[in-house]
């Protein structure tokens, strides 16, 4: 087991929202993330899946320092990234970067590709023009763009090319962790495979650790080493991708897997969910929730615990008394 690069321990994020009363009365706490813990090792791809509003993006923002956690700690190489003594944006920038979902909103329309890659280098103390030019050229080569294209503005590129530029920008400071927020969901289906393969190549070449946020399970299946399934700010199941995709235990995970479109469904008379293997024995304990009803986001979830049912495969169950 390699040492973990990033450790998230019991992360909670709550937002104070207006209840709609006069004079700010009726303010309530929205529980977005309720005690997430995970570790990310070097060179690993960990995916967080779940429906909209389950807290997966908030978790990512907390890791990037764009959202202050309410409770819990995030450590990078053993050093805290949160609370007092947390590093500033500058130090954090060299550790974690992000590839954004929408390639049309993630590039400044008034900066050429070269400018948007050179500015962060200059900010981080690389001032020699030749070194900046070299690093930009290498990075453009890495993501499959030519140096001539660096002089163009974002609107002159297609969605897939823009996403390549976004990847280049995320990697230009040589971070060890890259958060991928739905990296291909805004792209044309025919482009997705190219970008996924590019991300996998870069991961291998540069030894990157990916934290991928997605609801597209076919992409998750293709890229991930491990998967966290989130519901209402909690992990309901986590495990290696084989555990999740071949032996899903939690009813929520099973429904997600069953919802993947299956091109061979016609040839197979059974519904996909029925083709999944049975739920492994859980020592007679029940699931904390089957996640079929919308949760009350204004109160903390009922007590439950993650139980290891196989090596590295954990499921959320009602607590043992």
């Amino acid at each position: 087991m390699t040492a973990s690069l990033l450790e998230v321990d019991d992360l909670h994020v709550r937002f104070s929202v207006s209840g709609g009363g006069l004079l700010g009365s009726g303010r309530r706490m929205l529980h977005a993330v309720n005690g997430i813990s995970f570790k990310l090792a070097k060179g690993e791809c960990l995916s967080i899946v779940g429906e909209s509003g389950c807290g997966k993006s908030t978790t990512a923002l907390a890791i990037l320092g764009l959202q202050e956690p309410t409770e819990g700690t995030i450590r990078y190489r053993g050093q805290p990234l949160t609370g007092t003594g947390a590093p500033g944006r500058m130090q954090r920038a060299k550790a974690v970067q992000m590839v954004f979902q929408d390639p049309y909103a993630s590039l400044n329309p008034r900066q050429t590709v070269r400018a948007s890659l050179a500015a962060p280098l200059r900010l981080h103390g690389i001032t020699a023009a030749s070194e900046i030019a070299d690093r930009i050229e290498v990075m453009l080569g890495n993501v499959g763009l030519t140096p001539e294209q660096a002089l163009r503005y974002p609107h002159e590129f297609s969605g897939g090319q823009r996403q390549r530029i976004g990847i280049a920008r995320a990697l230009i400071l040589e971070p060890e962790i890259v958060v991928l927020d739905e990296p291909v969901s805004a792209l044309d289906v025919s482009i997705r495979a190219q970008i996924i393969n590019l991300l996998l190549d870069l991961q291998e070449k540069l030894g990157l650790a990916y934290l991928m946020i997605s609801h597209d399970l076919s992409v998750v299946e293709h890229m991930s080493d491990r998967v966290l399934v989130m519901f209402f700010g909690q992990v309901v199941e986590e495990g290696g991708w084989r555990d999740i995709f071949e032996k899903p235990a939690h009813p929520y995970t099973r429904r997600l897997i069953a919802a993947i479109p299956d091109p061979y469904a016609e040839q197979n008379p059974l519904r996909q969910q029925d083709r999944l293997p049975g739920v492994p024995p859980l020592d007679g304990r029940g699931f904390a929730s089957d996640c079929s009803t919308a949760p009350d986001v204004f109160s903390a979830p009922a007590r439950s615990e993650l139980v290891e049912i196989a090596l590295g495969h954990r499921v959320r169950l009602v607590p043992a008394d």
């Binding site: 990037l64 320092g65 764009l66 500033g88 944006r89 500058m90 954090r92 920038a93 060299k94 974690v96 970067q97 992000m98 954004f100 979902q101 929408d102 909103a105 993630s106 590039l107 400044n108 500015a119 962060p120 900010l123 981080h124 976004g166 920008r169 995320a170 400071l173």
Partner: peptide, 16 residues
């Protein structure tokens, strides 16, 4: 827009 968030994650200060 995410390019402003990207600038934050790249270490840009608020004024920059």
């Amino acid at each position: 827009l995410s390019y402003v968030q990207a600038a934050q994650t790249l270490g840009y200060g608020d004024l920059r």
